[in-house]
Structures are given as structure tokens and as C-alpha cells.
Design a binder for these strands. Structure first.
Length: 270
DNA sequence: GACAATGTTACAGT
DNA sequence: CACTGTAACATTGT
């Protein structure tokens, strides 16, 4: 699934598009455009890409004329440059001939065009939590965020309004690395475990980025190449396999409708 | 042909 | 009202 590391990998790859000008767009799946497709094409033609950034799991293309292209991959979306697969839903052509494909098996992803001045309010970017790999996400900041938080660890990690960019893979990994049960109550965690969780979040996400993402289903980079982080996972999708720390069989439960894998012995409730 | 996969949002409940 | 938890939705491969 595209989470922070996968989206970051794509954004890094997409930097080759900065400075290019949109010439045309084609699609056979108009529904992924969150506005009338014809208007979208009309508006984006001739606009130039000034910069490409990531916020949470969103890709933000800052364009000329104060426009912004916002893309979310949801479960199975990704971009391809000079590469193809059977699930291309939209194709962007640039004035220099460069071709950018948007591929998405499930078609849950979305693409829309907005205004630089208003998109944050319009799409709720102002409600997103802190970026976990930025310098501002210190342990002090983390303690502040969890202060008075009554909920449990996994739903907290998945919610985008406290910390942005974590999904099912990195939530399970973070809880495992910290040695905390996914259903442990946040306000019951001793200080040392809070610190362990903070470090685990940074560690799992950083490793994910270094490994260019986790490819278990379909995620690939813009060249269609697989990530390598699936070889470094401790918990995600390891149900029934021996825990890599203690050898105990890994358990699977469902939390907020997400499959959740953990080690009963290594991950405690406190 | 039922089901599993999951990020987001709308909504119910406290 | 702020916060937490749950259900529904998008679609397709197995």
C-alpha cells in the first residue's frame, strides 16, 4: 500500500518532471478525476510544474498560475514514467514529449486540480497531523500530541490528524519495533515506552524510504521497479510465521477493520 | 460469487 | 463540543 515511504519514493522520482508543461491528458476512467474531466483537461493544458511535494499520503504538484494538482493513491495507485502496466487509467503528456501514466488497479485513487491559495482549507490539509520525518517531530512534540489521548495505539497511528502518513504496514511495524501491543492504551504507556514508540515510528518510516517502499501487492516506483522494504518487515503480513525476535507464532487480529499482525509475547499492553 | 484488501469520511455515541 | 469508535464506500483479483 502506498503510505508515506511509498509516496515519498514516487515524489522523489517525479522530480524529473519539474519545469515541464502539460500538453494533454487522456483517460478511460473519468471517475478518478474529482471534477468534470473535460474542465480538468482544459484547465491543466499549458500549465508548468514548479515543484512536486508530499504531504501525508498526498502528492502535491505546484503549477503555474497558482494552480495545484493534488493526487492520492489510496490502495493501488502509482505513477509510471517510460514504463507501462495493464492498469493505466490516465496518461499525461508533456510539451517535450514526456509521458506520465497514472496506474491504479482498484481505481480508488483520485486526482484533482485546485488553487494554491485555497486547497488547504478546501481539502482539509489544515487538519492533518505532523510530518513524522520532519525535524519538528521531536519527542517533546510527540509527548504533547499523545497527552490526554484516551485511545489505543493502532487507531492512533492510523489516524492522519495526529501524525500524518502512517498506514497499515508502518503502524504494525512501529508497534512491533516498540514492543507495544496494538491495542495498548496510549495514556497507560510508561515514559520509556512512549519514547520507544516515537523512535519506532521514525525508524520504520526511515527504513521504508531508504528501501524505496514496501512491495507486497503491487506498489512500484515510477520505473515500475519494486521496493525492497518487504524484506525488512517484522510484523506486517507475517501472521502464522515465527516472530523474528522470539520465535513465537505471530497473531492476527482485526483493529478498526484492518488486519493487524503482532507478537503476543513481545508486544505488551502495559 | 463471496470475500479480502485499506485510506478516508460520514456518522453514531459518549 | 471534543473526542473516540464504527460503518460504509470506492473496485477488482482470487
Amino acid at each position: 500500500m502506498p503510505e508515506l515511504p511509498e509516496v515519498q519514493t514516487q515524489v522523489d522520482d517525479l522530480q524529473v518532471l519539474v519545469g515541464k508543461k502539460f500538453l494533454d491528458v487522456r483517460t478511460d476512467s473519468e471517475k478518478i478525476f474529482k471534477m468534470p474531466y473535460k474542465i480538468f483537461v482544459q484547465e491543466i493544458r499549458g500549465l508548468k510544474i514548479k515543484s512536486i511535494k508530499r504531504r501525508a499520503k498526498f502528492l502535491l504538484f505546484f503549477l503555474s498560475k497558482k494552480k495545484i494538482l493534488i493526487v492520492h493513491f489510496r490502495m493501488t495507485g502509482h505513477f509510471l514514467i517510460d514504463a507501462e502496466d495493464p492498469y493505466i487509467r490516465a496518461t499525461f503528456e508533456f510539451s517535450d514529449g514526456t509521458i506520465l501514466h497514472y496506474s491504479d488497479i482498484r481505481k480508488f485513487g483520485c486526482v484533482c486540480l485546485s488553487e494554491v491559495d485555497t486547497y488547504e482549507k478546501k481539502y482539509g490539509f489544515d487538519k492533518l497531523g505532523v510530518e513524522p520525518l520532519e525535524d519538528e517531530f521531536t519527542f517533546d512534540k510527540f509527548k504533547e500530541i499523545i497527552k490526554g489521548h484516551k485511545g489505543t495505539v493502532k487507531p492512533f497511528l492510523l489516524s492522519q490528524k495526529f501524525i500524518a502518513g502512517i498506514g497499515n504496514i508502518y503502524a504494525d511495524e512501529s508497534a512491533f519495533i516498540a514492543g507495544i501491543h496494538p491495542l495498548a492504551k496510549l495514556d497507560k504507556l510508561p515514559l520509556k515506552k512512549q519514547e520507544a514508540l516515537y523512535n519506532a515510528i521514525r525508524e520504520s518510516l526511515t527504513r521504508g524510504v531508504e528501501n524505496r517502499g514496501t512491495t507486497i501487492g503491487e506498489y512500484v516506483d515510477t520505473k515500475g521497479e519494486r521496493g525492497k522494504n518487504q524484506y525488512s518487515l517484522f510484523a506486517y503480513k507475517r501472521k502464522g510465521l515465527p516472530c523474528l525476535k522470539c520465535g513465537t507464532e505471530m497473531q492476527r487480529i482485526v483493529v478498526v477493520q484492518r488486519g493487524t499482525t503482532f507478537c503476543d509475547k513481545c508486544q505488551k499492553m502495559y
